[in-house]
Design a protein around this nucleic acid. Structure first.
Lengths: 220, 220
DNA sequence: TCATACATTAATGTATACATAAACATATAC
DNA sequence: GTATATGTTTATGTATACATTAATGTATGA
């Protein structure tokens, strides 16, 4: 039924703890500690840690424990650079594929939700809808590997967002960009979709990196 | 001294066996078989397999054994699309960084080696130098995460290359492209570096995908 | 007081034992 | 003859035991 292995449980639990800040960036944790917390033996915890390590969320250092990877301003710049390129490609490919209006419904809904959240001044709801938009955009690009790489990168961004979301200016330009990208995809204009999204992400990158550097979250 | 754990040994050994074709794409292998072959217990083999799975080289399927991931024409198209974007970004960033001639020596050497290999009709040497060129190019882009993603993708390409290297036309245009990219980086022309490399990789992609599709290596 | 050598500690790396559950074969009913 | 149910096999998932080795503490000497 549940059919969920302990390794899967450990991966989920650890991810959640990391995103919730319960395991703070830079902190070290023994395999045995985590195993006890999760109510299982070291083996599945170790395997889960190996997986999370491959995604850059933790680092396993011999005799120092499992370290929750810190995310510096430099890291964020690297990550956004990758996101910028890959998501823009996905936008272009989505435009080349001739999607019907109904295929693009999820995208449209996400945009509307972002509008609503902005109007209601609900930043958390906005962030959730923004995530949804980008995830769907990448999915429409139809490149499974690209989706996976992007999702790994986005996980890292999410960790930084917890701290930066309430520091940054209202994402107003953002929604206009999303709308332009959406329309470009709908009418099959790959270049506009690509370039608009590219500029969109690059602006986000510059804003975020400046913010992180200014507040010296170098070892967040 | 050697200070190499069994997990590391297993990773190296399995990679080598995969690249050498000793573990053919699509084949299944029990953990216990591999463990016996490598002279260790299942534990390190399992951990190694988890790591290779994260890099897309194998898939672990419950009760079916460890499957060496097949690489289809579609996969190759996906991979080249990612490589195209990320390497082009690296080229642009390399151009923006003001490298001295000596910083670019490795790049220059690789180009000369490719010329020599082409003249000598030594495709294997050409492929090795080509690898070296691209690896150095990405390194100069100074984005550790990007380097890692690219290296994972290139591993997959390498597997297909074993089959395609002797089927494809002589890489003659290739070297001119490399030279243009090199010169653009040397004089700080980011746009030319980016666009030239982008076109270069896209051409390679189209050629390779056509080749794979033609020969119906769908489940290579 | 400081440095070095040694002993101790403790966390990981690895092996092994075992429980679980999927795949296969067999048998039975229709 | 087919299909379903049941039993058997076996590879994996997990726990546990143990060996290894890096880090820590201690003592000794200068």
């Amino acid at each position: 039924m549940g059919a969920m292995s302990n390794v899967e449980r450990a991966v989920s639990a650890l991810r959640q703890m990391i995103f919730a800040g319960e395991l703070p960036p830079g902190s070290d944790h023994l395999e045995s500690e985590l195993a006890e917390q999760l109510g299982m033996s070291r083996t599945p915890v170790r395997e889960a840690a190996l997986m999370l390590q491959a995604q850059g969320l933790v680092e396993m250092r011999p005799r120092r424990g499992i370290r929750i990877s810190p995310v510096s301003a430099t890291d964020m710049a690297e990550i956004y650079d990758i996101l910028t390129e890959l998501e823009s490609l996905a936008a272009a490919r989505a435009a080349e594929t001739q999607y019907s209006k109904s295929d693009l419904a999820t995208l449209a809904t996400a945009i509307r939700d972002m509008d609503a959240a902005l109007a209601a001044d609900d930043l958390r709801a906005w962030a959730e809808a923004d995530d949804r938009f980008h995830r769907e955009l990448v999915r429409l690009g139809r490149n499974a590997r690209l989706s996976m790489v992007v999702s790994v990168m986005r996980d890292q961004v999410r960790r930084a967002r917890a701290t930066t979301l309430f520091m940054r200016p209202k994402p107003k330009q953002s929604n206009e960009d999303h709308r332009i990208v959406y329309q470009a995809i709908a009418r099959g204009d790959a270049k506009t979709a690509h370039d608009t999204h590219h500029a969109h992400r690059q602006a986000a990158r510059d804003m975020l990196v400046a913010l992180l550097e200014k507040h010296q979250f170098h070892g967040l």
